[in-house]
């Protein structure tokens, strides 16, 4: 297939056309936040930007969404399905650490029963990923199977070139169809625009296999007594995370005989998460809850779904109110595993 490039202006034109066709165009703007773009001029694709404060998972798995509505009339009750927005969702300029999260969480929403709330949005989506040229002390995509060039989860992948151009390639049939649909905006790559190069390679921090082996054997370990000791038990980490997917189900009355049942984000760091009605709580302190967070990400999810439940975006660490750093925690596990090997 011939190599294609596209200018930022033409990407904006695509965004405009999509917007005019009732698509939900998701991208980042000057405030470096994913949002529904209503003015394509606001769209910014900056490979050097830090990952946004929150991931774009909320457009696929909203912080709150109705499961159904109920209406009570005398003795009968009507249950009404929610109207799901079936419009196409196009994410423009997803970092590899964001794009990779969708196929990861898609597994839990589909391994047995199918969650059509998530699936409808996911099936109607198109992800345009972009190489990442950012790296800070919290980034570790390459330690968890990703990389700044990783195309997992992207349908179309962009690589930044000089003069506000991007090299464009389809990754999936969906992406190929998309490029075809909007081919008038793409140009043949004549090699005029030099690729922008990353300043330096991302360092490697830990050996995932060693970490996994250590976690396999150390559910009980004094390391856990201090790992989560300073954690305050908020859910900042889980809610900004592109892969955290736990939720709560609640009923909400609206008037005396109608209301809705909703699915809301929830997090394993909350003390009530696992508490039984009897008062018994299997994870009755923050140390245990922190062990769950780390183990779910780096062991349990992998055991069950063959995926690491972390893309190394570093959001949880950048935003933690007590500066708990997931990378440093995993690095410590890595060094513990080396020590236990030495013995």
């Amino acid at each position: 297939m011939e190599e294609l490039i596209i200018s930022i202006d033409n990407l904006k034109e695509i965004a405009r056309e999509l917007f005019n066709n009732d698509c939900r165009v998701i991208g980042t703007t000057a405030e470096n936040k994913f949002k529904v773009i209503d003015d394509p001029e606001q769209l910014i694709l900056n490979p050097n930007s830090v990952p946004t404060g929150s991931s774009f998972k909320e457009f696929f798995f909203p912080k709150t969404e109705p499961l159904f509505f109920y209406k009570q009339n005398n003795s009968s009750i009507d249950l009404i399905d929610p109207v799901i927005d079936k419009s196409r969702i196009v994410v423009i300029g997803a970092k590899p650490c964001d794009a990779a999260a969708l196929p990861i969480i898609s597994k839990v929403f589909n391994w047995d029963y199918k969650d059509d709330l998530f699936n409808t949005r996911n099936d109607n989506s198109l992800i345009i990923g972009m190489s990442c040229h950012y790296n800070d002390e919290f980034c570790f995509c390459n330690d968890v199977g990703g990389s700044p060039e990783n195309r997992k989860g992207s349908d179309v992948f962009l690589k930044p070139l000089a003069d506000n151009y991007f090299k464009a390639a389809s990754v999936t049939p969906k992406g190929e169809a998309f490029i075809k649909e909007y081919q008038k905006y793409f140009e043949k790559d004549l090699g005029k625009n030099k690729p922008l190069v990353r300043k330096e390679e991302n360092p490697n921090h830990f050996d995932y296999d060693k970490v996994k082996t250590w976690l396999d054997n150390n559910f009980e370990n004094k390391f856990w007594d201090t790992a989560g000791e300073m954690c305050l038990g908020c859910a900042q980490c889980a809610f900004v995370c592109p892969t955290c997917h736990c939720f709560d189900i609640v009923d909400e009355q609206n008037g005396s005989c109608a209301g809705r049942r909703a699915k809301n984000w929830d997090a394993c760091q909350f003390s009530l998460f696992t508490k039984h009605a009897s008062g018994h709580n299997p994870r009755d302190n923050q140390e245990k809850r922190y062990r769950q967070r780390i183990s779910h990400k780096f062991k349990y999810y992998n055991d069950k779904f063959d995926e690491i439940l972390c893309t190394g975006c570093g959001r949880c660490s950048r935003g933690c109110p007590v500066s708990l750093d997931i990378l440093q925690i995993v690095e410590e596990i890595n060094s513990l595993s080396q020590k236990s090997n030495a013995i």
Binding site: K63, L232, C234, A235, A238, N264, W265
Partner: peptide, 22 residues
């Protein structure tokens, strides 16, 4: 607001064993 309750958890004066929202 995303109801992560970070405001509550970092607050030294928010020490209720069971918060009203719970």
């Amino acid at each position: 607001c995303i109801k992560c309750y970070a405001c509550r958890q970092v607050c030294p004066m928010c020490y209720c064993e069971k918060c009203i929202v719970e």
